[in-house]
């Protein structure tokens, strides 16, 4: 194989031109999907984190099992289970519905753990000071604890969000026409690997700034802990 053959197989500009309209709709779907599943996961995680502040045994243990269970099951397994399994129970779910349910359960558990750690990182004195001025439990959470909690775990939240956006690529397995799915479609039409390389480049350009930002935040965090 000559170098020209290699270029033709992986980096053909002609193919990129042909495949771009398909890839573009895929990118839009990926962004749309992210805009759905990230808030869903954060919302679910917030719910779990708030529940974890309830000290009662009957809340604590089921919550821990819930979180660890959904952290133990790989997201793709969960997605397939919801998508391919639920119809057998008489529940038809669309691909996007299955993705929404799977991501809510999986990423919710991860966001939940991060936010819980954030809440626990706020000193007890903050809670006491707020309660001593007459704020209710909920107001204390809302105005005093959560803003600090979120700030304390911001790098982890961003890092998890990066993982969630990357994870939307598994929606291709249930034929949701996001970026990876579209790239594979284009590949099967053109018999050329270029569309997949192009998709990879798009992912990289999209997410590289986030990776850079995280790298800096993480280094600062580690330095701050010394």
């Amino acid at each position: 194989m000559t170098f020209d053959d290699f270029l033709l197989a992986f980096f053909s500009l002609e193919i990129v031109g042909q495949a771009w309209p398909i890839l573009w709709t895929g990118l839009q779907q990926t962004l749309l999907l992210s805009a759905i599943v990230v808030p869903l996961g954060v919302g679910g995680g917030m719910l779990l984190a708030l529940l974890s502040t309830v000290r009662h045994r009957l809340v604590r243990w089921p919550l821990m099992v819930w979180v660890d269970f959904f952290r133990a099951v790989p997201p793709l397994v969960l997605l397939i289970f919801v998508y391919a399994g639920l119809p057998f129970a008489g529940l038809e779910v669309s691909a996007i519905g299955a993705v929404a349910i799977g991501f809510f359960l999986n990423t919710g558990a991860y966001y939940g753990e991060i936010l819980r750690a954030g809440i626990e990182s706020v000193p007890a004195g903050q809670m006491e000071a707020a309660r001593s001025t007459g704020l209710t439990r909920w107001q204390t959470m809302r105005y005093v604890v959560l803003p600090q909690a979120v700030r304390n775990v911001l790098p982890d939240l961003i890092s998890n969000t990066l993982e969630v956006v990357k994870l939307t690529s598994i929606a291709s397995v249930v034929a949701l026409p996001e970026l990876l799915f579209q790239a594979r479609q284009a590949q099967s039409v053109t018999y050329n690997a270029t569309p997949i390389v192009a998709a990879a480049v798009v992912y990289f350009l999209l997410l590289w700034p986030v990776v850079r930002l995280l790298s800096r935040l993480e280094n600062r965090q580690l330095a701050g802990r010394r």
């Binding site: 000193p123 004195g125 903050q126 006491e128 000071a129 707020a130 309660r131 001593s132 001025t133 007459g134 704020l135 209710t136 107001q139 105005y143 005093v144 803003p147 600090q148 700030r151």
Partner: peptide, 30 residues
């Protein structure tokens, strides 16, 4: 608790709010 003010050894000021915000929070929310 509004009738009983408390001052703590470790101040426990809210670090994400200004001095004014610290004082005003309960006035607004409670």
């Amino acid at each position: 608790r509004q009738r009983v003010g408390m001052v703590f050894q470790s101040f426990n000021l809210y670090p994400h709010m200004t001095a004014l915000g610290n004082v005003a929070l309960a006035l607004r929310k409670v």
